[in-house]
């Protein structure tokens, strides 16, 4: 099972990339597992981090094949 992970703004800068595909069988299938994996892998600052699954910020914790997960730093529009 594979998901696409996207990084934005300061988080993309910390990760050193904007997008990657991650195979979940190696790390676990919950959002919590993926979050922990990515934060540790890139030493991400998770103070004000928000995560969207398929463009929705919410309470879903189970991931499915093909999901798009976005790591979003604080918003700065306007």
């Amino acid at each position: 099972m594979k998901v696409t992970v996207k990084y934005f703004g300061a988080i993309a800068e910390q990760a050193g990339l904007h997008e990657e595909a991650i195979e979940l069988s190696e790390i676990g299938t919950s959002l919590g597992d993926l979050k922990t994996h990515c934060i540790q892998k890139y030493q991400l600052d998770d103070d004000a981090l928000q995560i969207a699954i398929n463009q929705q910020i919410g309470t879903v914790n189970t991931l499915n094949d093909g999901d798009e997960i976005a790591f979003l730093p604080p918003f700065a529009g306007g």
């Binding site: 703004g9 300061a10 800068e13 004000a48 730093p73 604080p74 918003f75 700065a76 306007g78």
Partner: peptide, 20 residues
């Protein structure tokens, strides 16, 4: 609510990330 990000650029070409 809108995921927009702002990189504040300084005159010496360094930067920091804006937070609303």
């Amino acid at each position: 609510k809108v995921p927009i990000f702002g990189k504040e650029l300084f005159e010496d070409e360094t930067h920091q990330w804006k937070v609303n």
